[in-house]
């Protein structure tokens, strides 16, 4: 009854709606605010601003560094997310399905990269990449980001694998499917939300990563957060708000297309 929309008492239902509405507002507030900031004329983020302007947009689109950094970020984050998920998937299977001692400890070992303050990881990796002559390369960016992203992918995938009722997979095997077939045809589709959110978290871990990226960056390869961080510290400028607004609009666009596609496919 607690999970059925109709049988939930109206009191509980509406208080739940109101609470989540309020929390959603809390989540949206700073995002909407960023859009406003991007049009404000005050360089010092005074709000409400003395006037409204488009000059930060002009600056943003006239500076190829911003666009380049955004593209690099996207590349690094996509590679990181894909590789981290691919490494995390078999490991999660082994941990949840395997029957061997010390699985709990292995699990905590896999979350270790999350626990260590990133600046320590950053210095450690940077020293190694320096000796190998790999600093400032895409390889260095992706490898270091995978390390931070792995725990997110592992935790999410394990979460969904644990929830998955294994007897369904076993049933498929009993009905004559090979174990591998059963995993690919039955298990994967059912644990997809976990894999997708794991991949998403891995993507984000890379997309927002600052401390390691500052170390790995070179004059011709830097990610968006590196560019933003150094800009924020040196010259506060609403161009950062413009960059974020551009990304917000892009993701809204993707969401609208996605819901449109969903509607289309529902009709058939």
């Amino acid at each position: 009854m607690l999970l059925s929309h109709n049988s939930l008492g109206w009191k509980l239902k509406y208080s739940l709606y109101v609470t989540s509405g309020a929390i959603a507002a809390f989540l949206v507030l700073p995002i909407i605010f960023i859009v406003f900031l991007s049009f404000g004329s005050s360089q010092w983020l005074i709000f409400p601003p003395p006037a409204w302007t488009l000059k930060w947009y002009i600056q943003f689109f006239n500076n190829p560094e911003w666009i380049d950094a955004a593209i690099t970020s996207l590349e690094v984050a996509c590679l990181t997310s894909i590789i981290a998920t691919l490494i995390a998937m078999p490991a999660s299977f082994a941990l949840v399905r395997g029957r061997f001692k010390g699985r709990d400890y292995l699990y905590s070992f896999f979350t270790l990269p999350m626990m260590i303050p990133v600046v320590i990881i950053a210095v450690a990796l940077y020293s190694v990449f320096l000796t190998l002559g790999l600093t400032g390369t895409m390889f260095a960016f992706v490898v270091s980001h995978i390390i931070v992203a792995l725990p997110f992918a592992i935790i999410s995938i394990i979460n969904s694998l644990r929830l998955f009722d294994k007897s369904i997979e076993d049933a498929a095997v009993i009905c004559g499917a090979s174990r591998l077939q059963a995993i690919f045809k039955v298990t994967f589709p059912l644990i997809k939300p976990g894999i997708v959110s794991g991949a998403l978290f891995a993507f984000l871990a890379s997309w927002d990563e600052v401390v390691i990226s500052v170390m790995m960056a070179s004059p011709d390869l830097q990610t968006l957060p590196v560019k933003m961080w150094s800009t924020l510290r040196q010259d506060l400028t609403p161009v950062i708000a413009v960059a974020s607004t551009a990304l917000i609009i892009l993701s809204l666009f993707i969401m609208i297309i996605a819901s449109f596609v969903r509607k289309q496919s529902n009709r058939h």
């Binding site: 959603a24 949206v28 700073p30 960023i34 708000a241 990304l247 917000i248």
Partner: peptide, 22 residues
């Protein structure tokens, strides 16, 4: 769900700065 995804998409630095001004 879309609101949550949107907030995750938005740069962490920008969201933090936005909070500062708020």
């Amino acid at each position: 769900l879309n609101i949550i995804l949107l907030s995750m998409w938005t740069s962490l630095l920008a969201r933090t700065y936005s909070w500062l001004v708020l």
